[in-house]
């Protein structure tokens, strides 16, 4: 069985423009049904993908696997050429620098101002100060926050906070932007603003993966939609729609 898997993996050449590959990925925790069950998924460079599904459908587990926060119980995950099942602990930071991540709860550093929050991401990957001073204002202009760079985080609205988080995710010029429920805490106007920004980022060549519950947005944007239920992908459609749960 194990041998068969390996043979299959080796036989199949990953196409050059495919940057995320999941083959028969199963993730089970110590108890209960597996969170992911034999998932196959291929995402190409430059795609815009929605992942939808109820809580418990396996979306979060999928995101965690893509971030290499978790490793699969079975199957193979390859992201940007890194085999995430075999990657060494000390190589993980280098891998993650290719990803930009946005969370539902923003996860900003509340004791620092807007500029410092974005610069923080650059400091961590050891960008020279000279470049940080150039990059941060330019990315803040992209998310329409150029005028608020000195504000403390708690002086901002939810939508503004999420834009800071987006700027932080983008400042290191990631290949893939992963957004986990980015509009979950936002009103419709702010949600749309964030989604428009993401679309714009995608048009500039970044692969964007958005996990969401927001039906209107998914249905209006006409992007690829992957629907998950109980750990399996039940639907994967270009220009897909949000499928109602019966």
């Amino acid at each position: 069985m194990e041998r068969g898997y390996r043979k299959k993996r080796l036989n199949r050449q990953i196409p050059e423009d495919e940057i995320i590959t999941l083959e028969n990925v199963t993730k089970s925790y110590s108890s209960g049904a597996p969170a992911l069950n034999g998932v196959n998924l291929h995402i190409k460079r430059g795609e815009f993908v929605f992942i939808v599904g109820d809580s418990g459908s396996g979306k979060s587990t999928l995101i965690k696997l893509l971030l290499r926060e978790l490793t699969p119980t079975e199957g193979e995950i390859t992201v940007l050429g890194y085999n995430l099942k075999r990657i060494k602990h000390r190589k993980i930071p280098k891998f993650r620098r290719n990803l930009g991540i946005v969370f539902q709860d923003f996860r900003l550093l509340k004791d620092r101002n807007v500029y410092e929050n974005v610069a923080f991401a650059q400091r961590i990957v050891q960008t020279p100060t000279r470049e940080i001073k150039r990059n941060v204002p330019s990315i803040l202009a992209t998310v329409n926050l150029a005028g608020k760079y000195k504000n403390k985080i708690n002086q901002l609205s939810g939508g503004e906070q999420q834009r800071v988080a987006l700027a932080r995710a983008l400042v290191n010029k990631p290949t893939i932007l992963l957004a986990d429920e980015p509009t979950g805490n936002l009103d419709p106007n702010n949600s749309w603003e964030i989604m428009k920004l993401m679309e714009q980022i995608n048009e500039n060549g970044t692969t964007v993966i958005v996990v969401t519950h927001n039906r209107e947005i998914v249905n209006a944007m006409k992007k690829r939609v992957i629907t998950m239920k109980k750990g399996v992908i039940i639907e994967d459609e270009e220009e897909g729609m949000y499928i109602d749960e019966d």
Partner: peptide, 16 residues
């Protein structure tokens, strides 16, 4: 804890 968590997600080395 949150700060450490964010740093790790962004790709900070253990040392950093």
């Amino acid at each position: 804890k949150d700060e450490i968590n964010i740093m790790k997600y962004i790709g900070a080395t253990d040392f950093f």
